[in-house]
Amino acid sequence: MRESNDYIVDARNITKDFGDFRALDDVSLQVKQGEVVCILGPSGSGKSTLLRCLNHLERPNEGAVWIDNDLIGYKEENGVLRELSSAALAKQRTKLAMVFQRFNLFGHRTALENVTEGPVQVLGVSQAEAKRKALELLKRVGLSDKAKNYPNALSGGQQQRVAIARALSMEPTVMLFDEPTSALDPELVGEVLHVMKSLAQSGMTMVVVTHEIGFAREVADRIVFMDEGKVVLDDTVTEVLNSTNPRARDFLDAVL
């Protein structure tokens, strides 16, 4: 039995193959309570795959993930890892909230309904209580007046802020952001980063896959730089941004 530790996210030796392609090669990542970790790297470097392995949207071929000392997707039993039922996995996922590149708001539900869906259906909160909390969350992301709108009547930036409110509605232990601003028009990026920044300041534990170096510099406690399915650098913001590692340098010089 592994003893519990202080890490909220503890991913050990994750390997993920898609057919012949090795997307992740023996990757480990630890995140402490309240830490904001940004994952940078060229496209195809495995950043998103790593994030999706954390909440088991992708099942790693090797390695294991502990979230708040919960082994994700498996039960440890006499030296073997037994796959959990989909219902048990669903329960574990409530600790991890995810914000997607393409927002993925439920298109047939209003902004408010998107935010109440999880609490009511998954956590069993009463409709009235969920609505009260959802309106608070929408206010927090600056969208009180859009509660009754369907996603297709919202701009990309507004949709992403509703998605953040939806993620927050589950009162997660960790929030995962998968390139949350990459699908946005440039003038809409700021409003989403603004919300994420205030989340970070409130002490939320966050793992953020992003290309926004400015955000990473300002908010992150650590930067993980990935390339070709491996973690190349995992260090403080200053160390990574000033790194002399040639692969990191190439990437950073191109995006800075």
């Binding site: 989909s86 669903a90 329960k91 995810m98 997607f100």
Partner: peptide, 10 residues
């Protein structure tokens, strides 16, 4: 994926 990420069962 969004539904799974908020902990919905199949």
């Amino acid at each position: 994926e969004a539904a799974e990420s908020i902990g919905m069962k199949y």
